[in-house]
Structure formats: C-alpha cells, structure tokens
C-alpha cells in the first residue's frame, strides 16, 4: 500500500498574526512554522499503516525551499520519503493541481490531506485533489481502517458521525480522530538523524491555473473594553445580555 500524505507548512498555533505594511501579504517575520495540525493527525495514521500493515509513506508539500524543515520533520516522524514541489502555494486549486500531477505518476492507494490548513482555512485541496484524480472522497475524516483494497471510514457530520465504505484508491480530508492527540509523535533523535538521509525529491511545478485573486488583508476590529459584573449580581448579567447585548 502506497500512502501519500499532504503536508502544509503553517504558522505555529500560538503565532501572533501580522501582515506586511502594505497589507498584501502575511508577515512571516519571527513566525515559527510547523506541520499543519490537521495533516499531523493524518501523517500519524499513515505511519500506523506503515508499522502495522507495511505501507510506504510519502510526504508531499508545495512550497519553496524554506518549507523543507517541515518536510524533514515529517520524515523524522516516520515518513519514508518526501517530495517538495518547488512553487509558492498560491491557492487551493493551484496546490491541488500540483499534487494531482505527482499522484497521477505514482498511483498511490491512499492520499491523506488535512481537512483544512490553519493558515488560509480554505478546506479545498483534499476535495479538489479527489475530483482531479476521480477518486472517492471522504472529508472531515475521523476514522480510517484499510483491509486489502477496501476502506471503512468515519466522517464528522453536523451533530454526529457517519460510517462509510469505499474502495481504494481514495482521498481523505483528515482531522483529529484519525488518531488522538496523545498518539502524535515528537521526533526522537534517531528519527531526526535518519530524516537527514531520507530521500527528499524537489520537483518543478507543472502548469497550473489559479482562479482567485487575493486583495488586502486586515486584522479583526479591536474588541471594546470588557464590562465586569460582580459575581453575586447575576441578575445584572442577565439584564445586560437581554437589554444591551440583546442575545437572550
């Protein structure tokens, strides 16, 4: 079984988000980058498939050289090899086209992407990739078992969960539930050392269109000052919620 795990290179969840002075771009200054948390659950699930069912795991990323440490981390966690497509990840459709081109050459049995990345929150790549490859798609996937060429999956739905079956090859948009938080792996020294020598192929981008244009960024409007209410005066809170905030 060949598994491809899509890795997005994103600011750490604790990052303060700033934009460049012309508001045209995200300001990367002083920002720590990590594997997109949604992708990390998928990566760990893929490594379980490797350990328990003999799968090979390839990590892929669309990005310039600065994203390589993130791919190396995926290798240190346990991916067998990695591919970096040397292009800026301009939008979801562009990224999906790039990964689809690699997938078409390599016939993966399973492609795991995150349901969204925590930077642009597009939630587009996994589904677009499935459609470009004409393979079954399960989004917000919280459970995956593979037996032969059949998969049993679970996905989150509004107010519950749904169980599905599908045949490989298939594409999922993963999230927590594929594995739990406690199952995530911190690379150990041996992993980090071996990651240095694992193959990381750099491929040129293929032609791909982008269908959206990005305008100016802005930060959320600052919150007005908090109104403190005394702990023994909950009647006042109810009154404020009713009369001032008008939410009850």
């Amino acid at each position: 079984m060949k598994v491809l795990v899509c890795i997005s290179h994103v600011p750490d969840t604790t990052s303060k988000i700033n934009f460049t002075s012309d508001n045209k771009e995200f300001d990367k200054n002083g920002v720590q980058f990590v594997i997109n948390p949604y992708d990390e659950f998928g990566l760990t699930r893929a490594i379980w498939l490797k350990e328990k069912q003999g799968a090979t795991v390839t990590a892929i990323n669309v990005g310039k050289a600065e994203t390589e440490p993130t791919l190396r981390k995926a290798l240190a966690i346990g991916a067998d090899d990695a591919i970096r497509i040397d292009a800026d990840a301009t939008d979801g459709f562009y990224v999906a086209q790039q990964i689809a081109a690699v997938a078409k050459e390599n016939n993966y049995d399973l492609i795991i992407a995150g349901r969204e990345s925590i930077d642009y929150n597009g939630g587009q790549v996994a589904g677009m990739l499935a459609a470009l490859l004409n393979q079954p798609f399960v989004n917000a996937c919280v459970g995956l078992e593979v037996e032969g060429s059949n998969a049993t999956l679970m996905r989150e739905i509004d107010g519950g969960k749904e169980t599905l079956t599908a045949s490989l090859p298939l594409v999922i948009g993963g999230q927590k539930g594929l594995v739990e938080e406690k199952d995530l792996r911190i690379p150990n020294m041996r992993g980090i050392m071996s990651a240095r020598t694992k193959p990381l192929a750099v491929k040129p981008a293929t032609d791909g269109a982008s269908r959206v244009q990005v305008g100016s960024f802005e930060k959320p409007a600052p919150k007005s000052a908090v109104t403190m209410v005394e702990a023994d005066n909950m009647d006042e809170l109810v009154k404020l919620l009713h009369e001032e905030a008008k939410v009850i």
């Binding site: 934009f19 995200f26 929150n121 990005v214 305008g215």
Partner: peptide, 12 residues
C-alpha cells in the same frame, strides 16, 4: 483567514 486572526477580500 488564520482562524479568524485576519480577514481578506478574495475575488474571482
């Protein structure tokens, strides 16, 4: 974008 730490206009 950025989990509501920012906003941006997109057009197509």
């Amino acid at each position: 974008v950025f989990s509501s730490k920012g906003f941006v206009n997109y057009s197509t």
